Structure formats: structure tokens, C-alpha cells
Simulated scan of single mutants.
Amino acid sequence: MSNDQPPPGQSPDDDPFRKKPQEPQGPQEPGGPTPPSGGAPGSGGSSPYDSPLGGPGGTGGPYGGERPPPYDAGAYGGPYGGADPLAGMPPLAGFGKRVLARLIDMIIVFVPLFLISLAFGGIEVATGGEDWDEVTDRMNSGEQWLWSLISLVAYVGYDTLMTAKYNGRTVGKKIMKLRVAMLNDGRVPDVGSSLLRALVLWVPALVCCYCIWWLVIIITVLVDKPYRQGLHDKAGKTVVVSAAQ
């Protein structure tokens, strides 16, 4: 008997050597099993934007809505036709509101400093009849430098503490309904970012550059695209946005 014939009573279709290759299966019918989700892009895995605290399991980013782009991936705008860099973020703070908020904060710090200075004879102000060399000597005196240091500590400390500990909001920003947030994920800036931001803002303004530095800050906020960051925002990797309340 030939080995090519199936045993008696066995159907030719059951012969493993005569079976045709199986056709590839088509798409699964609706309701069938779905592949498990993972951490790949678009799979629904957790990310720092999934919850206000940056942990897994949340449904919305800390900005509210879709997640914004990370700071290190095209934070200053991508190529034409790319994703909207402002997607998922609340509206950026208007320039006028930022100025008003800053003026309020400056007054809040200045008034106590001024009252303290009165107790020690007040801050010396030059008059028109004085010699310029005399004015310069008085400004460069140890007492004046000490006062500058006290002012610097007051302004930097106020900005750092309020930004890091009170949801990114100084008193001025709370009144104007603004807040400072980390650009990459919307979190409240930590102490390190808040301190760096405050130092870049206040050290040049109070130590050497005065009005010139404020002009530089204003220009950078006005011309920066797309996030309207001043140099202090870039240093702290922060952005100023509108707040609900």
C-alpha cells in the first residue's frame, strides 16, 4: 500500500499533507477582544499630564483640557504646520494685567521697607543743588549698600515664597486672576524655579541696571513667541497664565 494514501475511513481533508494553507483572518468583528493599552504614544498610557499632581490615573492635565507640549520639545514653537504650541493651556496673561499685578506686588513690599527706613533716618534723596561727586559718594556708602541688600532680600523672598507656596500666585497676581506655572506641565513652580525666576528679575533691577532692566523685561515679554516669556520666565522655565479665580 502506498504511503500517499490516507488510512481507510479517513477523509482526504484530514490528511495533514494535503491540507491547504489557512487563509489570513480578516479584521475582528465588533465586540471582539481589543489589544491591551500600553505606554506607547496614543495608547492611553499614563503621563505627567494625566493628573493635576503629575501622577497616573487622572483624566485632565493641570492646565485643564488637552496636554500642552513639553518644554524641551519645541517649547518656542515648531515648524510651520506643526501642532499648536498653546494647545491645552489656558489663555496667556495679558500684558496690561501682568504690569498691574507687578505694580501691586512692588507696592506691597515697598511700603514696609519705606516705613522701616524712616525709623533709621529715611532714604537719602539727592537734591538739585548738590555736587554729583557728593551724590555718588552717598550712594556708594556702606549704609546705602546695606539698604540695597535688605531691599533685594525682601523682594526676592516675597516673589519666591508667594510663587512656590501659594499656587504660583503673588497678591498682585491673585487680584488680577493670574498665576505662574511651569511651562512643561502646568505645575506650581518649586522653590528652585521660583528663586531663580526672582533672582533674574530683581538682582539687576535693584543692584545695577534699574530702569534699563525693567525695559529689557518689558521688551522680552512683548516680543517673545509664543509664550510671552520675560527673561525671568525663561530662567525659571515658567509661563504666566490666566487663572479661573
Rank of each mutant, 00 (worst) to 15 (best):
G78V: 07
G128L: 10
G55N: 04
A83S: 12
I212H: 13
S37R: 15
L118V: 02
G57N: 13
P62Y: 10
R102W: 07
V153L: 15
A244K: 10
A181M: 10
T170I: 05
P52L: 08
V207F: 08
P91R: 15
V188C: 04
M139H: 13
P24S: 10
A40V: 00
G230E: 02
D15P: 00
G192I: 08
G81I: 15
R187Q: 08
F110S: 14
P79R: 14
G88T: 05
S47A: 13
M106R: 09
V200C: 04
I107S: 00
A235H: 04
L100D: 02
D185M: 00
S2P: 05
A87L: 13
K177R: 15
N3D: 10
G31M: 07
V188I: 14
H232M: 01
E23F: 11
N3R: 10
K20Q: 13
S47Y: 04
Q229P: 06
S242N: 09
A87C: 06
F114N: 12
P189H: 07
L215W: 07
K177E: 09
T127V: 08
V223T: 14
G26L: 03
M106H: 08
E66N: 14
L195F: 15
I150S: 12
L183E: 04
V180N: 03
C209D: 05
K20S: 05
D137L: 12
G58D: 10
K177I: 03
K174L: 00
S141F: 11
L161I: 15
G60S: 11
M182S: 02
D131S: 04
P85W: 12
P69G: 12
F114G: 01
S46A: 11
S43V: 00
I108M: 00
E23A: 15
L201S: 06
R169P: 00
A93G: 06
K234L: 01
S11K: 11
V223M: 02
P56K: 04
M176F: 09
G74L: 11
L149S: 11
N3V: 10
W132P: 03
G82L: 02
P7H: 07
G236S: 11
S47K: 02
R67F: 08
G121R: 08
G57Y: 14
D15E: 14
D105V: 15
K173F: 01
P112F: 01
D4M: 12
Y80K: 14
I116L: 15
D159R: 15
P79L: 08
I219C: 09
